[in-house]
Nucleic acid binder design. Structure first.
Lengths: 152, 152
DNA sequence: ACTCTCTGTGGATGCCATCGACCTGAGCCT
DNA sequence: AGGCTCAGGTCGATGGCATCCACAGAGAGT
């Protein structure tokens, strides 16, 4: 991970569909060299994938909620995690410091679906209680913060 | 937004670097047709961009925190938002229902940097108080939930 | 100094993006 | 019904890109 790798990462975080030729121009290397660097970043796990950023409401996922989970004392955390992982509505799952062991970000189409999700969560073994907060609007989300110094 | 558009969106949410030729094979259209459809999805705002998904710790952003903000009564929300927007550490910003008007997801390199960020937030005009919860680990994040029916 | 390795360049080749010309079917007006 | 118009498709051509390969040069270790 030298400065050029950081520049590549920054460029791809900004636009994952840049061609290798374009990346090469931006960082001042040849296209094959960039190809190899990006391949190594991928196989070493620095770059985990490439995702289109889609407006959620336009694909019927207009309701965003953040849900805190309090774990049962003596619950099997791994089992509970597997139960959570199966629910597609849960986009993100953080293990937190604090009373609420987990914080979930969930996305559903309607408030009714959110209600169903919460019911399912409360029935999940290991879950003692949940606390749900609804996002009224998303000001911005997953904004990539530049990390390579002054990249071209 | 017909079924083919939904398939394209799903495919690109899974791998934003798929070629138009490959997308065309997957949805059963020609490459130019897919090119035009994707172009329309972009210009209509359904697809907002393409981002590399990078392991944050590998670019020096190993600390994730969620920060709730209680607004001053009578504060100018728009001004406060602009002050928040300027802080690159804040990756996401949601306007919430509840006592805490805003919920921020912030990413920094060290606990010391998090401390500085919290101090800055508390000094920001319009901010009455903050409440910070630290993510000890990220189980998963920004997992795209499939939305097009059975896409190829 | 030799050599090993890592990382780069340059050239060649086949695939892909992209443009323009043309086709086809749905909807609608007369 | 006939025919206009338009949206959205296919096909073919062309130039750029991805990708493979052979080879070059810098640094480290012996």
């Amino acid at each position: 991970m030298d400065a050029i790798d950081l520049s590549l990462v920054d460029l791809l975080r900004g636009n994952a569909r840049l061609s290798y030729a374009e990346l090469a121009r931006q960082v001042g290397l040849s296209a094959p060299a960039v190809h190899e660097r990006v391949g190594k970043l991928e196989s070493s796990g620095v770059v985990r994938g490439y995702r289109a950023d889609v407006a959620p409401e336009s694909i019927g996922l207009g309701v965003t909620a953040l849900i805190g989970i309090v774990e049962d004392s003596g619950a099997d955390t791994d089992d509970m995690l597997e139960s959570l992982r199966v629910l597609p509505e849960i986009e993100s799952c953080y293990f937190m410091a604090g009373v609420e062991s987990f914080l979930l970000k969930a996305r559903v189409g309607t408030i009714a679906e959110l209600e169903q999700l919460i019911v399912r969560l409360n029935r999940t073994p290991g879950v003692a209680s949940t606390r749900t907060a609804i996002a009224l609007s998303t000001k911005w989300e997953n904004r990539p913060q530049p990390v390579g110094s002054p990249a071209a």
